[in-house]
């Protein structure tokens, strides 16, 4: 399969009073259609910067991004973003929050069809009974479910997840990883997820891209995760390969985040 997303020599420089600060330098990454890639690295290494450039929310200072054969220019609904905090409108219901975007991108469709799309994704993320509650009445975990449904409902070309479960407690995080995997399995959207949770990266992705520490962060190493899908956490936790991969990532973060590439493979 050919590359669907191409980040070439992506560079981000911020002007500071002390002169330009190079955050990301010559970052190269290719993602195939339907691939789920996790991007891990230490806080502040620039992983979210890469994601926000891909989302079009941050200017690109060098290099470029091609998505589905077109060079990106600015933000758009063809990339669904799930933020760390779901950024819902608190006075609207979960359903209305999702409809906001659906009404935009499916404006030529019948109202009935638009409603069906929102209902479908809200039900799939487990909000079948709560979709007409106002978002301020929902728990943190439920709000993030709305965020996931909203991103998928736009039927984007690509899904961008910026530490989507970072604000949740560790158990709710496990639940939502399952939910995300479940919805993702239905659509197989090309996805890039920024996280610093090693277990999350392995459980969800096909490939874990490790970023070196900034300034001038780049790809440090790549881990292929070849566990079959659909994945079952229980089976994964029994698999010695899981622990090998986990250790590899931890070792990278602890010791090699400032060194240069090699290639690795699990399972």
């Amino acid at each position: 399969m050919s590359d669907y997303v191409e980040l070439s020599n992506l560079t981000k420089i911020y002007a500071t009073p002390k002169g330009p600060a190079v955050i990301v330098k010559d970052f190269n990454l290719r993602i195939k259609q339907g691939e789920f890639v996790a991007l891990i690295g230490h806080s502040g290494c620039g992983k979210s910067t890469v994601l926000s450039m891909l989302a079009g929310l941050n200017d690109i200072n060098g290099g470029g991004i091609i998505l589905a054969g077109k060079e990106l220019d600015g933000a758009g609904p063809d990339r669904g973003v799930v933020f760390q905090s779901p950024s819902l409108l608190p006075w609207l219901t979960a359903f209305e929050n999702v409809m906001l975007g659906v009404d935009q991108v499916f404006f030529t469709a019948r109202k009935e069809e638009r409603r069906e799309i929102a209902e479908y994704y809200l039900t799939v993320v487990g909000l079948g009974d709560a979709m007409h509650k106002r978002s301020r009445e929902l728990s943190q975990g439920m709000r993030q479910r709305v965020g996931i449904a909203r991103a998928f409902a736009l039927k984007p070309k690509m899904l961008l997840l910026d530490e989507p479960f970072g604000m949740l407690d560790s158990l709710t995080r496990l639940e939502l990883q399952q939910v995300l995997l479940e919805v993702w399995g239905r659509t197989r959207l090309t996805a890039l997820m920024v996280t610093h949770d090693v277990d999350e990266a392995i459980f969800l992705s096909d490939r874990v891209v490790m970023m070196t520490n900034g300034p001038a962060a780049e790809v440090g190493d790549i881990l292929e995760v070849k566990f079959p899908r659909p994945r079952n956490r229980h089976a994964l936790l029994e698999d010695p390969d899981y622990y090998r991969g986990r250790e590899f990532l931890i070792e990278f973060l602890n010791e090699r985040a400032h060194h240069r590439p090699s290639l690795a493979c699990v399972a």
Binding site: D78, V105, E116, E119, V124
Partner: peptide, 14 residues
């Protein structure tokens, strides 16, 4: 639940 997902493509807003 019986759910329906219309197989329609989003429009290019640009």
């Amino acid at each position: 639940r019986k759910l329906v997902l219309p197989e329609i493509e989003p429009e290019d807003l640009n």
